[in-house]
Design a protein around this nucleic acid. Structure first.
Lengths: 223, 223
DNA sequence: TCAATAGTGTCTGTCAGACATTATTAC
DNA sequence: GTAATAATGTCTGACAGACACTATTGA
């Protein structure tokens, strides 16, 4: 669509990722020091501009950024919202397509070394409208968390129901009754037993190890 | 962010609106004949490119388009999803920030004259990825419809509970039990009685006239 | 009177929350 | 044995769905 200099001007388009994990039983966001000259060095959302030559689509931009900035691939991400206007960046009209991603803390510990982590309830000052973007992401995850398997993306592939419950409690910020949780995730087929037992939990008694049942993402009943 | 000709190229950014209404007890989408030279005249989503000089932000773009194309203002709209990539428009990399809007059919009848209406379950061929965008919008409205007052935006300010139930049934595509619906919307304070009665419904017996209670948007229980 | 829609009363099965109880390990 | 966590049993109140019933109008 871009042709001559008489052509219409388009806004700058970037992708920003709210990368979330659960660390110390709290929902935390991974931030990275900015690399562009503007506000260089300040902790901000992991992001970058769309590259129309390299990227096939917006998801491609997200994947490229995750690879470049953190050496990460195959991360669960979902589009959040697009923020666009002339005021959000002093350099001019811009559009940020925001995504959020969920990643087990074990994956972050073994790969991405360059991130800083902050509890989502206690953020440092962030540039542009990044604070608002984080807030939206947390709202979305907390909102959908009660009736979807999205928070389970913060777990390793194999997990115990105690671990799963802890993750849900951390994401939702509430206590969850043990038996209700068990009944539900088992009855609705959300998890599948591996028939093996292990000590992944924190207890003395070994617990059954589960995996997510493929394909189950939403459930009607609430937690 | 745009400076010299050595500057990075950005994708074209446009806004597309899925304008929905309930007509003949069916959820329908309003389409307009395209004005740009490319595919001119074909029915497509109501949309246009962001104008960095005229528009303050994306919502401003939506408002301008609604005004220009249909003479409409103060319409309920909500951002849906952003579609971006190099393949969706043969002219090159583009980003469409999609919105959906809900409007009472009475408003459309008295103002916007230039739209065509199609049942969302029986769409004509649409350019670009507009069919996919409509599908997303319908999924979103159906999904959120069961536990939010969003479908009520398809009603006039004053309405009877029968009308409201008809709208919800049309949006969700299901029958809704009369008494459950009444109990719920009244108990949860979703509607407020005007204490007046009228014949807005389709029956012989006059029915109580309600308005939406301001501020109530989501409810925990399902329909 | 009847037809049509508005509105109410009530039963029942399901389920989340609460909480008590039993099971299996480490020490 | 005790401490700790895993897993199960069971009661209860809330509520959605179903459906019968009453109320108020036009014709």
């Amino acid at each position: 669509m871009q042709k001559k200099s008489t052509e219409k001007q388009f806004p700058a388009v970037s992708v920003d990722l709210v990368l979330l994990t659960v660390k110390d039983d709290k929902l935390q966001v991974a931030l990275a020091a900015r690399e562009p000259s503007f506000k260089k060095g300040q902790d901000a959302l992991i992001g970058g501009t769309v590259d129309v030559d390299q990227d096939d689509d917006l998801e491609g931009t997200v994947a490229r950024i995750l690879k470049d900035r953190g050496g990460l691939s195959d991360i669960f991400v979902e589009q959040l919202y697009s923020f666009g206007g002339k005021a959000r960046d002093p350099r001019g009209w811009s559009v940020a397509v925001a995504y959020y991603g969920l990643i087990p803390v074990t994956t972050l510990d073994t790969t991405a070394k360059h991130f800083s982590y902050y509890s989502v309830d206690d953020l440092p000052p962030l540039p542009f409208d990044h604070a608002e973007i984080v807030k939206s992401a947390v709202e979305r995850v907390r909102g959908k968390g009660g009736y979807s398997t999205i928070p389970a993306r913060l777990l390793d592939k194999e997990f115990t129901l105690s671990q799963m419950r802890d993750i849900y409690a951390a994401v939702l910020g509430t206590d969850i009754e043990q038996n209700s949780f068990r009944r539900k995730v088992i009855q609705l087929g959300i998890v599948t037993s591996t028939k093996r037992k292990g000590f992944f939990g924190r207890g003395d008694r070994p617990s059954e190890i589960f995996t997510l049942t493929p394909g189950v993402v939403n459930f009607d009943r609430s937690l």
